[in-house]
Every structure is written in C-alpha cells, then in structure tokens.
Design a protein around this nucleic acid. Sequence first.
DNA 1: CTGAAAGCGCTAACAC
DNA 2: GTGTTAGCGCTTTCAG
Lengths: 342, 342
Amino acid sequence: MSGRPTIKRVAELAGVSTAAVSQALNGTGRLSEATRRRVLDTARELGWSPSASAAALRRSRTRTLALVVRRPTDVLGADPHFSELITGLEGELSPRGYGLLLHLVDDVREESALYERLAAGSRVDGAVLTDARADDPRPPLLRRLGLPAVLLGAGGQESQVPSVGLAEQEAGVREAVRHLLALGHRRIACVTGPGELLHTRSRGAAVLAELAGAGLRPVRVVHTDFTEAAAVRATEDLLALAQPPTAVVYANDSMAVCGIGTAQRRGLRVPQDLAVVGYDNLPLGRWLHPRLTTVDQQVRQVGAAAARELLRQVGESQVPDAPLTGRPRLVVRESTGPHTPR
Amino acid sequence: MSGRPTIKRVAELAGVSTAAVSQALNGTGRLSEATRRRVLDTARELGWSPSASAAALRRSRTRTLALVVRRPTDVLGADPHFSELITGLEGELSPRGYGLLLHLVDDVREESALYERLAAGSRVDGAVLTDARADDPRPPLLRRLGLPAVLLGAGGQESQVPSVGLAEQEAGVREAVRHLLALGHRRIACVTGPGELLHTRSRGAAVLAELAGAGLRPVRVVHTDFTEAAAVRATEDLLALAQPPTAVVYANDSMAVCGIGTAQRRGLRVPQDLAVVGYDNLPLGRWLHPRLTTVDQQVRQVGAAAARELLRQVGESQVPDAPLTGRPRLVVRESTGPHTPR
DNA sequence: CTGAAAGCGCTAACAC
DNA sequence: GTGTTAGCGCTTTCAG
C-alpha cells in the first residue's frame, strides 16, 4: 500500500526493529536516548502514528470509554448536564488519547443490553453510568461483565462500583432552602424528579432536613418525570391549593422555567407572589426575566472526577487522585425574594 | 484465559474451522444452512461475539464514526442541536452496530488537529462535520486524509464532501418572515450568527429575499457570536434605535429568549411592543411566557440523513438512499402578534 | 542495550 | 460446499 505508513516502514527507515519503534513511542522499553530520538523523528517525518485497532487488539485495551445517555426526547433535565458532563469527561480523556463512545437509549433495559454488547465485543474499556437509581441493575451487571464503571450521582458505599457526586450535592439544596427561609418564606414546596433516582431522593431529604431545622415541613413534594408538561401540571396543582406555597424549589432549571411561565400566565409575579429556585445553572437562566435563582452543581467537575476515577480503574497511571473540586453553590438572582403579595 | 470466549473456542465446540464461524456470523461465505445454524447456536451458547478490535484490524474498518462538536462553553446555540443531532445519528448507526465517537474542541484549528489524529490512528471510518463555514478548511483536509465525511449545513455542490441540510433550511425562515409581514410588521430586524457560517448566510439571504419581495429591507442585521451576552447587547442596540424594529428574528431560540428577557426588562411587552421569532424549537420555548414562536428545523432528521449518507460512503450496503425528510416549519405561538403599542 | 519472534482474534483468499 | 492458511499492525516477551 502506498497508504498509511506502518510501524515496519518507520523501523526500516530508522534502521531499527519494529519493537524498538514501539518502545520508543510508548516510552516503555529501555532504549538509548539517541535511538529513541531518531525513531521518534522518523515517525513524525512519515506522519506515522500507531493503528488504534492493532494496539487495541494486542493490549486488549481500546482506550475508549462509553457514555450511555437516556434519550432526552422529553427529558429536558438531561440536556444541560449532558454537554457539560461531556466537557468535563473530555477534558481528562482527550489529553490521554482516550475517546468517548456515546450511545443513546430509551430505558434501563435497553441500556443494559447495550453494555452486554459493548462488553462482548470489547469495544470499550469502561463506562460512565449516569443517574444512579435505587436498586440500580447496572453496577452488578457491569461487575459481572468485568467492565470498569463509575456511577454518577450515587453515594459510593452502597453501590458496587465507585461513584461520584451525590453526597456533595446536598449542600447546594440546603443553601437554597436556607436562602428562602431567610427571605421569610414558610410555605415552601418541591417539584422534583422520579423517586427512583438517588439524587432526587437525596436532594429531597436535604430539603426536608433543612426545613425541619426551622421546625417546618414542605407544603408538598411533587414527583415528576422531569418533563416540562409535568412541571407545568405540578405548578398548577400547587398554585391551586387553598394555601399555596410562596416558594417552589425545582429539581432543574428547565422545570423552574416552566414553573415561572405557569405562574406568570396565571397573573402572578415572580418573585413577589411566588419565589422560584432552579437547579443546574443553565446559561439561559441568567437572561430570563426575572433572572433565575438556581444551584450551580458543577457538572463539569463531576465529569472530570468521574473520568479520572475511571481512568485509574482501567489502569491508567499518572492520573491524579484529585478529589472532586467545586461544591455546588447557590446563585442568587431575581426569581427569589420576599413574599409581598399585592 | 478463562475470560472472554474466542472464535477458536466456538469453532472447536461446533466442530468447524474458525473461518466457518466467521462466515456464519457475517453471512458472507457459502455455508450449508445446517452448519451455519450449529455455529450460530454454539456461539450464542458460549455468549461469544467477535472482538471489535480484531475485526477492525482485519477489515481496517472500525465501525465507528466521529462527531466533533465545538465546545459550547458560551455558545448555547450549539446545545439543543447537539442532543437532537445525536439522536438522529444514533437512530441510524446503532442498529447497524456502528458507534459514535464524540469529541469536543474549542475551535476549528483544534478540530483539524483532531481529525489528523483520528485518521492517523485509524480510529474512525468517517466523520460528521457540523456548521459548514465559508472557506471551510475541513472538507479538503478530510479529503486529503482519506476520511469520508458529511458536512452539515452546507449546500452540497460547492463543498468537497457530500452535505446535507442547508438548502432546505431557508424555507422555514421565509415562512417566519411572511408570518411577520402578514401580521403587519414592516420594521423587522435580524439577530444572527457569525457571518462565516453558511447557514447564517443562507438564512440571512432568505430573510432579505422575502423582505425584498414586499419591497422592504431589514431595519438591521446584527451578527453575533451566538452567545447570550451578544444577543442581549444586540437587542438593546436595536431597541435604542430612533426607529426600533417592531419584530426581531433571532438565529436561535436561546438568543430569542434573551431577546424577550431584554425587552421585558425595558418594560416592553412581547409581542405587543416587540414580536420575537426564534429558531430551533427548543422544548422550553413552548412553556415560556409568552410561548416562543420559532422555526422547527428538524435537526433529528438532518442527523439521520447525515448518518445514512456517511454509512453509504463507508461502504455499508443496505442503507436506503432516503432523502432528507421533514422540512423546517414555522411554529406560531405567543411571542409574535400585531404591533399594538400602548 | 537492542532485535527476533510469537502471537492478540479475526477474516479474505485460497486449496480441498 | 467446506476447511486451511496467511496475515492485518502492533506489543511483549525473550535471546542476543
């Protein structure tokens, strides 16, 4: 072939064996600095870099990680995380020559089938699991498949794979509730996600705990499937109560935006008649009218931490055991304020 | 290894050669139905499926396609496309056993470097290029690298790789402008993207053409870098004009939302004082107050069409030559209406 | 300190 | 019709 250069060609041109080339490239063997340089130079000259498939076959390592995302047809909550999470992952993977294989699925069943396929074909070295849930079938599955994994949004101890991100998240929610309490709110409601999701549970618990500290209980905790329609319905139900809440904490910004829209459509003013807190810190929230008060959960950092954990698991050396940096923090803007009905 | 079964094991157990197993699996050889069945059965029994790396090495085909996305740090316009596009791609790739390798980059230069790396390592069979631009360096580059590609948002003829999606997009914009004209608007402005992007150009041209048909010219066409801040600034500038527009057409929903927020913050009512049209049909737009009038550009279909085109290019048979279905269409909601200042 | 040789698991071309 | 053979390009022992 006149095509892509191979290791053989490089070896010939540099006057060494193919093994030497490999060693020079991977810094693995014991080569003299001179030959090492020479090899590397000829390699660059020829524009050669090793075939990923050949290396993968030989090492049984693909340097590829899987990220499976449940298809966000209706789940807008998934969206923002999504790209931020990937940014975080990529930041750690890319410099080390790792790639991210992305797949979209409709549900957990399909997701499991996919892992089976990926493992059977040795297509990836590991997987990032998102949205830990109660009795999550994926950790035991991946364990059985021998596929390294990190679980996002889980506590760590209880699951069978290392996980990252949950414990830290409560802080942001607590801060949000304290903020509302400080503004004088006493009738506070929650519009949250499906109860199976661990982060939904943990955030819910955080809200309850913080309210309990003030001797209060939430007006109501409404579980949704994260769709906009559900957020709208939940908000309408809350506002129709005899004693409606004066503040609502939503499980994500998208739902919070729906909530604001719903309140405004009923002629209510935000925040005077209803205070709204989101979660995610979508860029958009900053420009709405009113600007959205929200919790910045630093998904990007979570992604980076997950990537590091996974890389360490698949045996990548030189990966810092850096803990998750960046705690969630409340971003106070205009959608919260004291309750001052007309 | 007690580990993953190999083709050899399957062959032994089925009492055939490894070649026979391969042929049975790929339906490529000339095997008797009997042995074929037997092989497939033992394979399933052992839970064997071929190693992706080995097959890739042998065929010099990875069954992986690359999607490189410019990092949406500040560019919210990229976000929604992103997941919808991937959904569209995946729908065609997944059933055929193809994977999508996702990479994020900061700019075109970095993107090009990435393609060089991917090609040099034969990591992917092809690439999906997004956001065609004037004098786009990527098509010639990929051509030189011998990497099949599709270009999204380009006309087709002028570029060096097949492309999909641009010509069709003008229709939606034209419809939007006609809608505004029908509502009686005469002072119409545009807040659009960077002039290098072909879709920005083509949509701009479509607006001009449609206005010209009514003997009008846009109040102004403001180019932005798609950031929210720029959208806000552009809107403020427009509203500060001696003769401000009564309607603004934004290049995406995110900017449109910023526009609405900016107008409202100045005490203007949407749509009575300012009509706003977006582009993308983000789920969120439906729930804002007012609900956003926008153009649904059917990115998912574009993604699916792109995937089909690329699969055909990499020699996948059985890929329907289905044209792009789903033209963009205007979704009229509440952010547009006749101009009725107080 | 370096090179030769033996595969990794699979498939495409060939003998039977 | 069916099976055997020869690598794909690389890495990793192991001799030298």
